[in-house]
Simulated assay, not measured.
Amino acid sequence: MTAEDPEKRSAIMRAVKSQDTSPELAVRALLRRFAPFYRLQRKDLPGKPDIAYIGRKRAIFVHGCFWHGHDCARGARTPKANADYWKAKIARNRARDAANLEKLSAQGWRSLTVWECELKDRDALEKRLREFLE
């Protein structure tokens, strides 16, 4: 079986987690130090934020750069195989993300997107999270 084999590709895609990812766990570890008592994956909110502070009306999304089309080096990568599919898939993800942020805003929520690549500078990320939650 090669990586191009549809069965193998399907198995790889099934293994990709949507919650409790390494970047999400790292952000939660930072938050526990100064802002515990958050809620996870609230299905009653648009976009099912990864982290939500209900009383403060703050939602945090932790996005993988590739999956959500960030403009960093990792997010700009497009797979060579089935490139048209991936471009369309990531464009749909970005449109869905933007619509969810608009819906949250209409409900009086503030939201923050933390990109996977931001974890390289934990001090800057912690500062950004603190400012967002104040």
Rank of each mutant, 00 (worst) to 15 (best):
N93M: 11
T113Q: 06
K103G: 15
L129D: 02
C72V: 07
A95Y: 06
F66H: 11
I60P: 00
K89A: 11
L104T: 01
A81M: 13
A91Q: 10
K120Q: 07
D71I: 06
W109I: 03
G108L: 02
L133Q: 07
T78R: 15
G75V: 11
R96C: 14
T78F: 07
A88Q: 09
R92S: 14
L101T: 06
I90W: 09
A106H: 10
H68S: 07
A106Q: 12
W115N: 03
C72Y: 06
K80G: 15
V114S: 01
L101H: 10
R96W: 11
W67M: 10
V114D: 02
T113H: 02
L112G: 03
V114P: 01
C117F: 04
G108C: 05
K120T: 06
D84Y: 01
L119Q: 04
A81H: 14
D123S: 05
R130E: 11
T78Y: 09
L129Y: 00
N93A: 14
D71V: 08
R74C: 13
D121Y: 00
K87L: 10
K89Q: 11
R110L: 06
N100E: 14
G64R: 04
A73P: 13
R94M: 15
A99G: 14
F132D: 04
A99M: 13
L104D: 02
